[in-house]
Nucleic acid binder design. Structure first.
Length: 498
RNA sequence: GCCGGUAUCGUCUAGGGGUCAGGACACGUGGUUCUCAGCCACGGGACCGGGGUUCGAAUCCCCGUACCGGUACCA
């Protein structure tokens, strides 16, 4: 089995295309097949090298590696259409010679008028075959005279094309709704329908798995395979991915490219797992599955027929799950950039990394994405009693019964660094004895005084983290952190001042 | 307009001639004796409409409707 993913390098890798790539990859890996990457860059106006590089990067990040492709090579190369022009030219000549294609001199303006006229008359717009009857000799003469024709494929005038679609079953199109498609443009570049067929045939692709938007191209392609003397591959057309409003997923719906999801702090295994579940189900009740297991269970027959809505919430839930499963060191490495962006980390030293790693258990599980981790830990780096008390969320706590007493008693109760849970609990007990406050009346004021916030990670974890941070040497590149005792003193002073 | 495709909770889906129509996300309630998030438990929530076939239809057939794709010298 040989499958391929064939993106056009005209922008970022969209999650819908990533899903197509994934389904191809899953099929190849579940069946010991070969996964090929081909770059369809015949549209020179829109194709860019940067896009190509970006797409390759995104695929690798997702873990969708390929066995043959533009960068890794292979026996069926080259793998960029722009490097295969000679092949298309040669097959176009073959078609011309065999009478299966002809030169068309119709101007774009004329074609456009015909199309509008058809539409206005309620007829399906379709090429009228005006140039079908031009003899090869006449055509040659006009070309020598300087005209630049396109080459069109001669679609049989009657009959129909039926192909078997592995997800949808048999699909039939009548030939008379298919206009003669352009094979080669007037500038000599091949058109999509022609290039794919030549490439898929020459690359010996056995299963063409692509988006449903290509289903109506399939009959022309099948006809081309036949005219070229190749046997068509199996086809499978995947339904499309939609936004919540059931229109095609676009920027309006938020992130749509793999690169954006990566930047926002999603883990590749979460995106892969989520994408696999749009339009496919592994059966049974499990849906949290690693890519290898997805591949083991994947079957085209189980792919759904209807379009699926991209659900950001469910992706977020999956991402939380995979963050909890990920090794702390890896998470730390992946999150540093967000700490740096916030100014919480100035340099990436070993001490800084150890510190960040130690903070993770407090944040992972509470946030949806890596990017949100620093915000959850803001209380460490941005302690400011005056600013805190200016906020209703914090100031309101002072009105709670006994809150002021707790805060006033706090500085004296902190006799040394609260290095762990026990040290913190012991300290809290001292305040409890002195003030008679307990439970919420005790802990809520302590939270506010020590973190400057009304909500956040559990104090058993947060307080020792503050002390650890305060003890990090300034050379480690961590933004300065105020220790608990100093916090208690300045917070008490601040409310005394008010 | 024409051609093709699709239709189960809000969303992703399982199932499929007789089921309490199952799961997940989201949502609601309660618990986790500092809070938020998380986690746990419980709960509400669906077979597009109309005909037909059948003892029996969500399931099979037909029609309709809605939605999606295509109808390019874009892919």
């Amino acid at each position: 089995m040989r499958v391929r993913f064939a993106p056009s390098p005209t922008g970022h890798l969209h999650v819908g295309n990533a899903r197509t790539a994934l389904f191809n990859w899953l099929l190849a890996h579940g069946k010991d097949g070969t996964f090929i990457l081909r770059i369809e860059d015949t549209d020179i106006e829109r194709s860019t090298k940067e896009s190509e590089i970006g797409i390759l990067e995104d695929l690798r990040w997702l873990g969708l590696d390929w066995d043959e492709g533009p960068d890794v090579g292979g026996l069926h190369g080259p793998y960029r259409q722009s490097e295969r022009l000679h092949l298309y030219a040669s097959y176009a000549n073959e078609l011309l010679g065999g009478g299966n294609a002809y030169y068309c001199f119709c101007s774009p303006t004329k074609l456009d008028e015909d199309r509008k006229a058809d539409l206005a008359a309620g007829r399906p717009p379709k090429y009228r075959g005006t140039c079908r009857s031009i003899s090869p000799d006449d055509a040659r003469g006009r070309i020598e005279a300087g005209e630049r024709p396109v080459i069109r494929f001669k679609v049989p005038e009657s009959g129909d094309v039926t192909f078997r679609d592995l997800v949808r079953g048999e699909v039939t199109f009548s030939n008379d709704v298919i206009g003669d498609p352009v094979l080669v443009r007037s500038d000599g570049r091949p058109a999509y329908n022609f290039a794919v067929v030549v490439d898929d045939a020459l690359m010996e692709i056995t299963h063409v798995i692509r988006g449903e938007d290509h289903i109506s191209n399939t009959p022309r392609q099948v006809l081309l395979y036949q005219a070229l003397g190749f046997s068509p591959p199996e086809f499978a057309h995947l339904s499309l991915v939609m936004g919540p409003d059931h229109t095609p997923l676009s920027k309006r719906h938020g992130a749509t490219s793999v690169a954006e999801f990566r930047e926002r702090g999603y883990l590749p295994e979460a995106l892969v797992n989520y994408l696999a579940l749009i339009g496919w189900s592994p059966g049974g009740d499990e849906e949290l599955l690693p890519i290898q297991e997805l591949a083991r269970r994947f079957a085209l027959e189980d792919v759904g027929h209807s379009a699926g809505v991209f659900d950001q919430e469910k992706l977020a839930w999956m991402n939380r799950h995979y963050m909890k499963e990920a090794a702390p060191a890896r998470l730390a490495a992946e999150s540093v950039r967000y700490f740096i962006a916030r100014g919480y980390l100035r340099r990436r030293t070993d001490d800084a990394m150890d510190f960040v790693t130690s903070l993770l258990p407090m944040a992972v599980g509470s946030v949806d994405r890596l990017e949100e981790i620093p915000d959850r830990l803001k209380f460490l780096f941005e302690y400011d009693p005056a600013a805190a008390l200016a906020r209703e969320e914090v100031a309101g706590v002072l009105h709670e019964h006994g809150a002021r007493e707790v805060i006033v008693a706090l500085p004296e109760a902190i006799q040394g660094p609260l290095v762990d849970r026990d040290a913190f609990r012991t300290m809290a007990n001292r305040v409890k004895e002195r003030t008679g406050m307990k439970g919420k009346a005790l802990f809520h004021p302590i939270r506010v005084a020590l973190t400057g916030e009304g909500a956040g990670p559990e104090l058993d974890l947060a307080v020792p983290a503050i002390e650890r941070g305060a003890a990090v040497p300034s050379s480690a590149g961590v933004a300065p952190i105020v220790n608990c005792r100093d916090r208690a003193v300045s917070f008490a002073a601040e409310i005394g001042r008010q």
